[in-house]
């Protein structure tokens, strides 16, 4: 009996860590979404597609170069490639639509999702791909008697690094401060002689780059497939909403709630694990419909 409860506790701890490494991915993706929502006020439905593209680009670059360096190069290349794609879309099409109402912007990003989904199918085909973690990240180590994948540990380190980096960028740099000011009052920022349109382009680009980074980081942990975009975008949206629109720490909190309920759900009731996060989200929203932390809206 005693040992049985011990194993459960160890399993619980292990699942918690798995949940936290999932949180990292969710946080990176949804912080980008939250940034765009907070500053540009656009619910970017195509965010999931950019995440998927990030994963596919990582796969292609990593297998093309191969070996230990392949993955690290891919990890740098994929987010930047996604960022440039986002910049092209923003400058080419999106910036002409900012005056439209929210629903039109949302539908536009949805149309972008539809197009990008098929573009991925066109380039990479409909088969799924899988990418091994770089050699030094392979295998697992023992944690209280339970195996824990090394790559997940890497994710657990990446999460806080990205959070701090993003915080520093939005709070300590000039462009970050301008972006935050534009979120509150874009007319005033424009009146100060700042080109708000380019601030928006920067923020959109940065947010999408986060989606690409999330996709790159998730690539070795799961199959890279069509349909990744549909799954992640709904999760990211819910995370951003329960955290508070535009609030980066809210995205972190929401991602933790989502990641942990999901992993605990797998332990408790595997068949309905997928339902747990949605229940958590619904409970949060019933009591705090505008999210847990302060929204920038």
């Amino acid at each position: 009996m005693d040992s049985a409860s011990h194993i459960t506790l160890a399993a619980l701890g292990q699942q918690l860590l798995v949940g936290l490494s999932r949180t990292t991915i969710l946080f990176i993706v949804s912080s980008g979404l939250s940034l765009i929502l907070g500053v540009l006020r656009i619910p970017n439905v195509s965010h999931g597609s950019l995440y998927m593209i990030g994963a596919f680009v990582t796969y292609s670059v990593a297998t093309f170069i191969g070996g230990q360096t392949g993955f690290w190069v891919a990890l740098a290349v994929a987010p930047v490639a996604v960022g440039f794609l986002a910049l092209a879309v923003e400058r080419g099409i999106f910036c002409h639509l900012y005056e439209r109402e929210h629903l039109m912007l949302l539908l536009f990003t949805f149309s972008l999702m539809l197009v990008l989904g098929d573009v991925v199918k066109l380039i990479w085909g409909s088969d799924y791909r899988s990418l091994a973690a770089p050699p030094m990240m392979q295998g697992s180590f023992s944690l209280g008697g339970m195996p824990f994948p090394r790559y997940n540990l890497f994710l657990l380190i990446m999460g806080p690094l990205v959070a701090v980096g993003l915080w520093a960028l939005t709070n300590k740099t000039k462009i970050g401060k301008i972006a935050r000011a534009a979120a509150v009052d874009r007319e005033m920022v424009a009146a100060m002689g700042i080109n708000v349109s380019w601030v928006f382009a920067f923020v959109f680009c940065l947010g999408c780059l986060m989606a690409g980074l999330g996709g790159a980081l998730v690539a070795p942990t799961q199959n890279i497939t069509q349909g990744m975009d549909h799954a992640i975008i709904m999760e990211a949206f819910l995370i951003v909403i329960i955290g508070g629109l535009g609030n980066m720490w809210g995205a972190l909190l929401g991602a933790a709630i989502f990641g942990i309920t999901d992993s605990i759900g797998i332990l408790v009731w595997p068949q309905f694990a997928i339902v747990f996060p949605y229940v958590a989200v619904t409970i949060v929203l019933v009591f705090r419909p505008k999210g847990l932390l302060k929204s920038t809206w």
């Binding site: 099409i93 039109m104 539908l107 949805f110 539809l114 197009v115």
Partner: peptide, 18 residues
């Protein structure tokens, strides 16, 4: 590639025929 066609139709709609 039906979804791409639908996406392009939607883009054109938003721009030209809201």
């Amino acid at each position: 590639y039906w979804t791409m066609v639908l996406g392009i139709i939607l883009m054109l709609l938003i721009f030209f025929l809201p």
